[in-house]
Write a protein that binds this DNA or RNA. Structure first.
Lengths: 135, 135
DNA sequence: CATACTGTCATAGCACACTATGACAGTTGT
DNA sequence: ACAACTGTCATAGTGTGCTATGACAGTATG
């Protein structure tokens, strides 16, 4: 599990950690049941404060991505979102809309956007067989 | 020139403006010599403070993307060349991948993702007829 | 010249990201 | 039990993103 921080991006460090952990799970690098690095060593590794890592983990637990217990550590949860379908759809729509705005600025046609999405979905599926995104 | 802000993303608003203006230039929507919206009207439009827009423009000028003169306005510098297709594709792929990771965590199937993308593309097209995203 | 636009600067206040540090509580291994 | 690990909570200080507002200067238009 490698985490790369970009201090100039403007995106809060704790959110960068959240994103990268979620991406690692999404990509199969981290699997359900596996443990995350403990807070203090990771903070030292990344040369940031303990609280920043703790905040990232708290956010991940809040999102239902990990489970954490004082004294034991933090572990990847079996991914089962507590959200209802409509809520999940709205959440995903946000990310999709961001991509569409980007596509607009970069002058892609809807057909090209769809093709690219198909492409990326395919690449993702190939790298991570057997997860929730399979057909 | 359409700018869409996401207040929950954690990315500072002024940087979102910078990014989207640069993307618009990259795609050729904004051409050298053209003027940007003036600070006050744009701020009112986006319902943010004048200073936030001013900061975005200052950053753009600092990066050499635009030229700005008190009393006249802000203008795209002529040293800009639209990115090539492959570069634009990579930029878009980043946003698409972010949405796909999100979709994984929200347990959507690829088919559902594609359907949602089609949906949002349609909604966007309906709201903004005649723009670069039309087929 | 006067008015209405443009960008710029200064100040003040609020929220939050991050740091720093200390203290406490649960778990594990010896 | 003890030591060494785990996460958690509290407090305080710094920096900065954003808002709000007022004042000023350059430019264009009449």
């Amino acid at each position: 599990m490698l985490i790369q921080l970009n201090f100039k991006s403007g995106l809060p460090v704790y959110l960068q950690i959240v994103e990268q952990v979620k991406a690692a799970i999404a990509s199969g690098i981290l699997r359900p049941g596996e443990s995350l690095p403990s807070i203090r060593p990771l903070a030292e590794d990344l040369r940031i404060n303990r609280n920043t890592v703790a905040k990232a983990y708290a956010e991940l637990e809040n999102q239902g991505v990990i489970e954490t217990a004082a004294g034991k550590g933090s572990f990847i949860k079996d991914s089962q979102t507590p959200y209802r379908k409509e809520v999940r759809r709205q959440l995903l729509a946000g990310a999709v809309d961001a991509a569409i705005v980007q596509a607009y600025h970069l002058q892609f046609t809807p057909a090209e956007v769809l093709e690219l999405v198909r492409d990326r979905l395919g690449a993702f599926e190939q790298k991570n067989p057997g997860h929730a995104l399979k057909n």
